[in-house]
Simulated assay, not measured.
Amino acid sequence: MPSPDAAWFERDPVELAPLLLGGVLRRADASGAVALRLTEVEAYRGSDDPGAHTFRGKTARNATMFGPGGHVYCYFTYGMHHAVNIVAGPAGSGWGVLVRAGEVVEGAELAAERRHVRRATRIAGELARGPGNVAQALGATLADDGAAFADDSPAQPAGPEARAGMTAAWSFTPADAPPAFRTGPRVGVSGPGGDASAFPWRFWIPGEPSVSAYRAAAPRTRRA
């Protein structure tokens, strides 16, 4: 099924975020395809949002966020994992929605293999619970930054030679009817951006096991 056109994503991220819930985010590459039914997301609103990567303006790292909606913004964080965002709004806005969690609905075996790389034992629970696990299950890296959502493609083209030359293809299919959702403070955001009353911009489907438990940002202490 084709992804919506770019105009569908060119909304305020606080409006777009709940519309992403229940929709299916899919990434296909030479290894196969993994798709997630999104269960938890967070909105980030550029220069109006002290919790956003783009609060202080455009940099080489966050440049994709200043492009048009309907693209993937992927970044490396905490020196240990990637995170996947969906760019929102018109070009220049610096808006986006972080994918925090999802239910694997295609490619569970491949997602499990990817998650197992950093573990001594197999994953027993949800494969895409938390943004780092989302990116790992999908196989997303910095090479995916800036990718556009396109028509849903087959998991693998025919023949090993074709698969070897395949670049990652991304698609997003909205839910037929967005599910009921709840809102609350974003996870791990410190300072003013973590104000629960000013920025209740985490959106999730209640009752979903893949949704992460809320954790406030740990206060940072200066070294003497």
Results as ranks from 00 to 15, higher is better:
Val211Ser: 12
Thr167Asn: 04
Leu25Gln: 05
Leu36Cys: 09
Thr121Met: 12
Ala17Ser: 00
Leu98Val: 11
Pro50Trp: 04
Thr221Met: 11
Leu38Gln: 02
Asn133Cys: 13
Glu113Tyr: 01
Trp95Tyr: 14
Met65Ser: 04
Leu110Arg: 12
Asp5Leu: 01
Ala213Pro: 05
Ser197Ala: 09
Ala216Cys: 09
Ile86Thr: 09
Tyr75Trp: 10
Gly96Arg: 01
Glu126Gly: 05
Ala148Asn: 10
Ser47Pro: 10
Pro178Glu: 07
Trp201Lys: 00
Phe181Asp: 00
Gly125Asp: 14
Asp176Leu: 08
Asp48Phe: 08
Pro179Leu: 13
Arg11Ile: 03
Thr121Lys: 15
Ala177Gly: 06
Arg186Phe: 11
His82Met: 07
Ala147Cys: 03
Thr221Asn: 03
Pro154Asp: 10
Ala33Pro: 02
Glu15Ile: 01
Arg114Gln: 04
Thr173Leu: 08
Thr77Val: 15
Asp144Lys: 09
Pro154Ala: 10
Gly146Ile: 03
Ser153Asn: 05
Thr173Tyr: 02
Thr183Phe: 09
Met166Val: 07
Pro185Glu: 03
Arg56Tyr: 08
Glu42Cys: 08
Ala177Thr: 14
Leu110Ile: 08
Ala88Pro: 07
Ala33Leu: 03
Ser47His: 10
Arg56Gln: 08
Thr183His: 12
Val41Leu: 03
Gly94Glu: 01
Asp145Thr: 13
Trp201Cys: 01
His53Asn: 00
Thr173Gln: 09
Tyr44Arg: 13
Gly57Thr: 09
Arg114Phe: 02
Gly132Ala: 14
Arg100Asn: 02
Pro209Cys: 06
Pro2Arg: 12
Ala135Ser: 04
Tyr214Trp: 15
Trp170Met: 06
Ala137Arg: 12
Met65Asp: 03
Gly146Cys: 03
Pro18Thr: 02
Pro131Lys: 11
Val87Met: 00
Arg220Pro: 07
Arg220Ser: 12
Leu142Ile: 14
Ala6Val: 14
Ile123Trp: 02
Gln136Cys: 12
Val87Ala: 00
Ser47Lys: 15
Val14Asn: 06
Asp12Phe: 00
Val105Gly: 13
Val14Met: 05
Pro160Gly: 08
Met166Leu: 15
Ser171Thr: 01
Ser31Gln: 14
Ala88Asp: 07
Asp176Ser: 09
Glu109Trp: 00
Gln136Ala: 15
Arg163Ser: 11
Ala177Arg: 14
Tyr214Phe: 15
Asn85Phe: 01
Gly207Asn: 12
Ala52Trp: 04
Thr183Gly: 13
Gly130Leu: 11
Arg129Ile: 04
Ala6Asp: 15
Ser197Cys: 00
Phe55His: 15
Asp48Val: 07
Arg186Gln: 05
Gly191Lys: 05
Arg118Asp: 07
Leu25Arg: 02
Asp152Lys: 09
Thr121Phe: 13
Val34Ile: 12
Ser153Tyr: 00
Ala158Val: 14
Phe203Ile: 01
Leu138Glu: 06
Ser212Thr: 15
Arg182Tyr: 11
Pro90Lys: 04
Arg61Thr: 05
Phe181Ile: 06
Ala30Thr: 10
Arg220Cys: 03
Arg56Gly: 01
Thr121Val: 13
Gly23Val: 12
Ala124Gln: 13
Gly146Ser: 01
Gly92Met: 04
